[in-house]
């Protein structure tokens, strides 16, 4: 019953990295192959743009989830928070841009407060984020009681950009994966953040202000939520606080599929981005196969279940 030693849990074993990468890369390739076999048109620039257009929002939601997973926390309110950001973008950001920007910064501030509750007051992140999800949902309903609103023109134009050769969703995925990798795996900040997820005492004894790092990670999560809200707004061109409720489960699935554990410290930013793209392909695949929408949420649950089971059984440590 000995706990794994700390260096091993930080995931520095080289073969550990290699086996970690196999699952997200393998499942992405397999899913792409199936999608292309069913729908050859998907391989074109237009086709790829179309089937991956929904991935951008999920990528940022997954990165928000990854931030909290780094500290050993979990965000059960990320879907509702993205919903609120979506509603703010489709109303205030269009009608009154300064107010919209202020409200979006308010969401980031909300995440910092959440971090304060979880880490200064030691409230379980499960309950704090579930409670916060009610607040996000209520605020979103206040702003836009029924789905509606309209995306700002500049935002729709931005997401309608068609870069040469590589479709925009792929460009965004690559950039966000690279940025997340450097922030979490290569920077000093990322090292301290991951370290605090493994052993708060170790970081505390090193003389670093632990709470500052933790709050910064929460602020980063809030920032990713805002980016996700912007992407969802551009994709749907309107606002609906419930439109992204599925992101809570899907973001957890993407993070786990990517190779992270929710025990803290062990994360895989690039894997999480690949995971988010894979899960978007699952949704496209279900649509191609004409699976009734009744079964979609169950299929997503099943995918998450199988992925985690495979990962847990193939690794020596608990997933």
């Amino acid at each position: 019953m000995t706990a794994p030693t700390l260096p091993a849990r930080l995931g520095v074993v080289p073969w550990g990295r290699a086996s970690q990468a196999a699952l997200p890369v393998g499942s992405l390739v397999a899913l792409l192959a199936v999608v292309l076999a069913l729908e050859p048109n998907a391989s074109t620039y237009r086709g790829l743009t179309l089937i991956l257009s929904g991935s951008t929002g999920l990528i940022f939601a997954a990165l928000a989830q990854l931030c909290l997973a780094t500290l050993g926390d979990i965000d059960l309110g990320v879907g509702a928070a993205v919903g609120l950001a979506n509603v703010v973008c489709a109303t205030w950001l269009t009608d009154n841009p300064p107010l919209g920007v202020l409200a979006l910064l308010g969401i980031v501030a909300g995440y910092v407060l959440l971090g304060l509750v979880v880490h200064a007051r030691q409230v379980s992140s499960i309950i704090a984020t579930l409670g916060a999800s009610f607040v996000w949902l209520g605020l979103g309903l206040l702003l836009l009681p029924i789905p509606g609103g309209i995306a700002p023109a500049w935002l729709t134009d931005l997401f309608a950009l068609r870069p040469v050769v590589v479709p925009l969703p792929v460009v965004i995925a690559a950039i966000s994966a690279a940025v997340a990798y450097f922030v979490f795996m290569r920077s000093r900040f990322g090292l301290i953040a991951r370290g605090s997820g493994v052993s708060q005492d170790a970081i505390r004894h090193s003389g670093r202000p632990l709470i500052v790092t933790q709050l910064a990670v929460y602020a980063l999560a809030g920032f990713c939520v805002v980016l996700s809200g912007l992407a969802v707004t551009a994709n749907t061109t309107s606002g609906d606080v419930n439109a992204s409720s599925g992101y809570t489960l899907l973001s957890i699935a993407a993070v786990v599929l990517g190779g992270a554990s929710f025990g803290g410290g062990r994360i895989a930013p690039v894997g999480a981005v690949l995971g988010a793209v894979s899960l978007t392909l699952v949704t496209s695949l279900l649509a191609f196969l004409d699976v009734s929408s009744d079964y979609q949420v169950g299929a997503q649950g099943l995918v998450l279940f199988l992925v985690v089971a495979v990962r847990a059984l193939s690794s020596r440590r608990p997933a």
Binding site: D73, V117, Q122, V123, S124, A132, V135, G138
Partner: peptide, 28 residues
Amino acid sequence: AWQFIVEGLLIIAVLAAANPRSEGTTVG
């Protein structure tokens, strides 16, 4: 909408105020 907000805030506030000792914050 306000019911959601009040309930959510109240739950967080009560737990933050009433927490008597360190609880495990890690999950999973």
